[in-house]
Design a protein around this nucleic acid. Structure first.
Lengths: 347, 347
DNA sequence: ATGAAAGCGCTAACAA
DNA sequence: TTGTTAGCGCTTTCAT
């Protein structure tokens, strides 16, 4: 077993408090500092963060709960967030809940037992109940990507509706009228928002909304492929399609290949999220992009702020005069990368 | 703050040991069991794993160190491993070291401070020095994907050489002779192995090895694109190319698109790793696949075995009669997914 | 600036 | 089976 502070104290003839003070950046006489450093070197001493965590009641660990690690969008965010958090001395415990609400609840419980100091969550389920214990403990939660009622916490979102609206209007401006959409699951926040954006763009431009042009996929590759097929069958005259997440974009492209449809001659496509995939496609895909690094930074910064700032946690506290709890919602703008997958009609 | 065992003891009138016994599956009188369960319910008691970890000197936490989380191959493995480990009660702390040896060392240190019980590492650097502290503490390490001299630990590998050889021989069998390879960095274990496989296939089939047909990329998308360009410039008559990892496959395909090269008519392609990308490409790519789930399971199982099995850890212990340390090396077979990116020459 | 001592919440002897 | 007690390695008053 490794050396402990006690060993250092014995070795240097100093008291425990002095060693502790040194380790935590306190003032120590030059002579003693050297002695301590020597002892640490010789005994290979390393602070035991577990003991420290028990004493201080802060583990310097953040729990992250996500639907799928195996998903570029989430992975990019996690990578960045982990990096930022670690640079602040925080470890991250990541739990992949496989887009399953039950497993999500288990993950939160698991992390609660581990006494993480805070949580970054991309909610899968829609029930707030699993978070109550955590909230009650006064520890901060930051939600990413999706909003959830009933959990007092900060949210880092993306302007999904605006993104979808923008994408569809680009199609309209190029002369498309029969525009299909591969939408996501009805119970997913982002999916609803994106669908809303589609409809607004359609209506705002005086196009009659045609229900058969919207097909729901389940945010997976297979789902995207199936949706694409159904969409094409129901609407052979459709000239463009907007696909509302990355996995479904991949699936739809697979299906388009299988059906031998030429893009953009026979069908224009706007996809979502993954710029590398977009560039590697033939022709290059036009896509909506999400600011993953910004999302990660906003989430990590917000959490660290809560953890180190003065405002303990917005329990039942009041924000200034109004009765609002002090929660923050950041909505980030999406981007658009132009490819060659959209045809222009000469009007 | 949450309730502690002491609170439960007071509430039930029982001793601490009884509560502890109950929590750890010991025998408790039925009557008391009920009392304890009631108290736990009412006080919202949750075991403090931090305290438990301090006492038992086992945190039930595994550290994972990887070059890039933001990489499908790694992400798939991590997802699976995390799942398995958590189902055994182990939390995972993931550290992404951005393919940087220095950061890798820091990550190992970081995890050591956190007193993780074991490590799963996909080594980036080639120096074993960063692991010595960990090894000395007697905690188990499992290395994945790449081997490293000087660290006594179990290894889960893939038959990289065989995979590359097989891929190249498929090209040869279809009549290709001028076969290019986009190889990986010289200092990466898997890259060397795959290149070796290429050369063996070439030589074994009586083809004269042409140095200019092997271009080194750096395992990134940009590197793959650059390598593809150089390869094509140096060898306009090359009929096929084997690309030795996923990122470079994407990059190469981007470049192929840019150059307007038709696959497989003008150039046959065999890529690596990501089956979804392969299927979504036009035409569908033929690729080598790695058994990510198997790798993850092997790694997780091996580690758990070490952690719970009787054999404490192969320190300076002897394996049977010979002087070998008891380390295990598993080498898994790769797969191959046939696409339409390889042309057959009528010989 | 330094030391002594208490205690964070738990487990594990040892006794009863 | 249950209770008592002594720590695990650290931080943190409170003295000095």
């Amino acid at each position: 077993m490794g050396a402990t502070m006690k060993d250092i104290a014995k070795r240097t003839g100093l008291g425990l408090a002095t060693i502790s003070s040194y380790l935590n950046g306190g003032n120590v006489r030059e002579k003693n500092r050297i002695k301590i450093e020597e002892a640490i070197e010789e005994l290979h001493f390393e602070v035991n963060e577990v003991a420290r965590g028990l004493k201080t009641n802060r583990t310097k660990t953040i729990g992250i709960v996500i639907p799928e690690l195996n998903n570029i969008f989430f992975a990019e965010i996690i990578t960045e967030a982990e990096d930022i958090l670690r640079s602040h001395g925080y470890a991250t415990m990541i739990c992949d809940c496989r887009s399953d609400a039950e497993r999500e609840k288990e993950a939160v419980d698991f992390l609660y037992h581990r006494r993480v100091d805070g949580l970054i969550v991309m909610p899968t389920g829609s029930s707030a109940s699993g978070f109550q214990k955590f909230v009650r403990s006064g520890k901060p939660i930051v939600m990413i990507d999706r909003k959830m009622k009933g959990v007092p916490c900060d949210c880092i979102l993306v302007d999904n509706e605006g993104a979808a609206m923008d994408a569809v209007e680009r199609l309209i401006q190029k002369g498309h009228r029969k525009i299909g959409m591969i939408a996501g699951p009805e119970d997913v926040y982002t999916a609803r928002e994106r669908q809303e954006g589609y409809q607004k763009a359609i209506q705002r431009n005086g196009i009659i909304f045609d229900e058969s042009l919207v097909v729901r996929g389940n945010y997976t590759i297979a789902g995207g492929a199936a949706a694409m097929r159904r969409l094409r069958e129901a609407n052979p005259d459709m000239t463009a399609v907007f696909i509302s997440n990355y996995e479904m974009t991949v699936g739809a492209m697979m299906e388009i290949n299988d059906l031998g449809i030429r893009v953009p001659d026979e069908l224009s496509v706007i996809g979502f999220d993954n710029i590398d995939f977009a560039k590697a496609s033939v022709p290059r895909l036009s896509i909506v992009t999400q600011p993953t690094a910004q999302i990660a930074r906003a989430a990590a910064d917000t959490l660290i702020e809560k953890l180190t700032g003065k405002a303990p946690v917005p329990n039942d506290s009041q924000d200034d005069a109004d009765g609002e709890p002090t929660t923050l919602t950041v909505t980030l703008k999406t981007g658009f990368v132009e490819g060659r997958s959209v045809r222009r009609f000469d009007v």
